[in-house]
């Protein structure tokens, strides 16, 4: 039997950043996802974002890009859930939403590729466009 399955997903990191003296793998994966997003949009990673008034808010991760210099922050809640923190006031709603989606998509793609690799599949990753909006999709193929 072969099936096609659609899954809803939710990112949940380890509640602890460092486990056994080493960066937890889920935190390392998020760091990697953010680095990929930063590279794509010419941004950089930091540990704080600013609001409309210029006040700084510290976060577990933060990404600043030229299109959204206030930045997208990520806070890992005690249960491991990830919350995005940003101030989109003044016309930044679209770019902020897009960056959050891209971070989520990159994290999910990396997690799927790593998982298939751990299951001994040979893994290939391809970026495609889909739908009338030509939205970016990532295809991860595993062959065993």
């Amino acid at each position: 039997m072969s099936v096609m399955t659609t899954y809803r997903t939710r990112i949940r990191l380890s509640p602890e950043r460092v486990v056994g003296g080493e960066l937890d793998p889920t935190w390392a994966l998020m760091q990697e996802a953010l680095e990929a997003t930063a590279q794509e949009f010419g941004g950089r990673l930091t540990d704080r974002v600013t609001d409309y008034y210029g006040r700084e808010i510290r976060c577990d991760f933060a990404l600043i890009t030229p299109d959204f210099p206030r930045g997208i922050g990520l806070r890992v809640e005690p249960g491991g859930e990830v919350t995005f923190i940003y101030d989109h006031y003044g016309g930044y709603q679209r770019v902020a939403s897009m960056l959050c989606e891209r971070i989520t998509q990159n994290y999910t793609s990396l997690a799927v590729a790593r998982a298939l690799g751990e299951m001994n599949y040979s893994v290939e990753v391809e970026e495609t466009r889909e739908g009338p909006e030509q939205a970016r999709a990532v295809v991860v193929r595993g062959t065993l």
Partner: peptide, 24 residues
Amino acid sequence: TRKITVEITRSGEIKADFAGFAGD
């Protein structure tokens, strides 16, 4: 050959296609 093809959409939803598997 067993193949798993996973598409990750813009919103992070995933669509997985399992091909080449017998039975369950």
